[in-house]
């Protein structure tokens, strides 16, 4: 048992626990906070895997911006919990069985097809240098320029879409609900 492994197991436990907490908590605000915790743990994993930029992006975009949006909507709608389900009674057991099957199958497949037993050493200090970041930026803006631009268009479309959806035009007497 090396220290690496101990750290990993601890972090993994926190991640799984926070994920479960998110998935099963009755209070929506708690769920959001569990998810934030989970994101932070994953960001630590990114650091351990030598991806500091992604780790930072994870914290700022996901744990920061997106989750703020979530909480904002939760607050806006004011619904923290729902009454017990009366529909789809067989959904929950079936979902659990299928989820377990999925986990087993995907794990088995990943491990059996490619037995990745290679040890992942903790990154050295070079991973955190600016040259590393520069190289990544170079790849992003040369090799992956087109996907990058398309993504920016996608973001623009999503922004417009969100605005159109949220915008409320009150037309007197139209009454067809399409406004």
């Amino acid at each position: 048992m090396t220290s690496d492994l101990i750290v990993f197991i601890l972090l993994a436990l926190i991640a799984v626990a926070s994920a479960l907490g998110m998935a099963f908590s009755q209070n929506t605000v708690y769920a959001a906070l569990y998810l934030v915790l989970n994101f932070i743990v994953v960001a630590v994993f990114y650091l351990l895997l030598g991806a500091p930029f992604i780790a930072m992006a994870q914290i700022t975009v996901y744990a920061g911006a997106i989750m703020v949006l979530f909480v904002f909507v939760i607050m806006l709608l004011g619904v923290q919990s729902l009454p017990p389900a009366k529909t789809l009674p067989w959904q929950k057991p079936l979902a659990v069985v299928l989820a377990i099957l999925l986990a087993v199958e995907s794990t088995y497949l990943l491990l059996s097809r490619a037995p990745l037993t290679q040890a992942l050493a903790a990154p050295d200090a070079s991973a955190n240098t600016t040259s590393n970041l520069q190289q990544m930026a170079l790849a992003l803006f040369s090799e992956y320029l087109l996907p990058f631009e398309i993504t920016s268009i996608l973001l623009l479309v999503a922004m417009v879409g969100a605005i159109v959806l949220s915008k409320h035009e009150k037309k007197a007497g139209s009454g067809n609900g399409l406004g």
Partner: peptide, 16 residues
């Protein structure tokens, strides 16, 4: 969504 998951499970099972 359950149907989709069922499909995924079945396809993975087929691959196995």
């Amino acid at each position: 969504a359950l149907s989709v998951l069922l499909g995924v499970v079945l396809i993975l099972g087929y691959l196995i």
